[in-house]
Design a protein around this nucleic acid. Structure first.
Lengths: 147, 147
DNA sequence: AACTAATATTTCGCATACGAAGTATTATAT
DNA sequence: ATATAATACTTCGTATGCGAAATATTAGTT
């Protein structure tokens, strides 16, 4: 009986994640960008310049994954890689000049979508969700060492 | 300010999902199977026979995704496809005879892992998590029609 | 019965997503 | 100063994961 709750929780996470991704794809469809592409553009419109590893950390992705996404954004002409002068191992990702008008649009689209998640949710509901997610995160992250 | 909570929630979901997947990969590493492969073997050891579309529904995946996973499990000799006699459009996925000893092992491994999620979690914590996830799921799923 | 619609699955093209290995550069140790 | 280790990123191979289109079969219409 012990694994029943774990099973239910794992299943719910999978389902919620899938739903969220589907809605993100739908919301960004007009822009012809995928969710992670859009999120990176969003972050760049706020930060103006990010290291590949910073993007990986913020988005919880492996460097190799981000590198591939940047490849495609670069090919689309939306960003450019710039090697750091200070430390030439570092690659800065910057929004490109020629797509500057789009940046505001991307930013607004993402902001708007993120708003809809909690739109017409009560404060109580938001608290419930945040509490539950934080608790689950803690449960998952501690149980490294044992016996 | 409105999108801040939405952003935080989306980010937490991503992070939790990634953590869960990483732990699943780690737990199933010994078996040389990926998480979805392992989950399908788990389901088959309980049900003995499932339609492709049933697997898709239970796992919240597109049929095309499941079809690919079954391809690889079949290539490994762990399952076999059997066309239904009743409705020849339907494909039944069955555990293979030659891997029968492994099935119990797979089942135990999955059961054990699902147990660890809630292991040494208090009832209060489990309730918090369940409440939060259910609330979030409801929030995401209702906002189809509007204005 | 012939035609059309619906259903179940597969195939295809593409974009994540990961870890391992490779490359280049910088930091550290001897 | 040179060898070694650490860091940042890319490349490679493989497995999801999706939607759209293709295929095969069954159900429903006329």
């Amino acid at each position: 009986m012990k694994h029943e709750k774990g099973s239910e929780i794992a299943s719910l996470i999978r389902e919620i994640n899938a739903t969220l991704n589907a809605q993100l794809r739908e919301a960004f469809k007009e822009n012809n960008l995928t969710p992670p592409q859009m999120m990176i553009m969003f972050m760049l419109s706020e930060e103006k310049k990010l290291k590949v590893s910073e993007i990986s950390t913020k988005m919880n992705l492996a460097n190799s994954t981000v590198s591939g996404i940047i490849d495609r954004l670069e090919k689309l002409g939306y960003v450019q890689r710039v090697r750091s002068e200070v430390d030439r191992r570092v690659v800065h990702v910057e929004p490109s000049k020629q797509a500057e008008e789009l940046h505001k649009l991307f930013h607004d689209t993402v902001t708007q979508f993120l708003g809809t998640i909690v739109e017409d949710a009560t404060d109580k509901q938001i608290t419930e969700v945040m509490t539950g997610l934080n608790t689950l995160q803690k449960l998952l992250n501690r149980e490294k060492q044992k016996d």
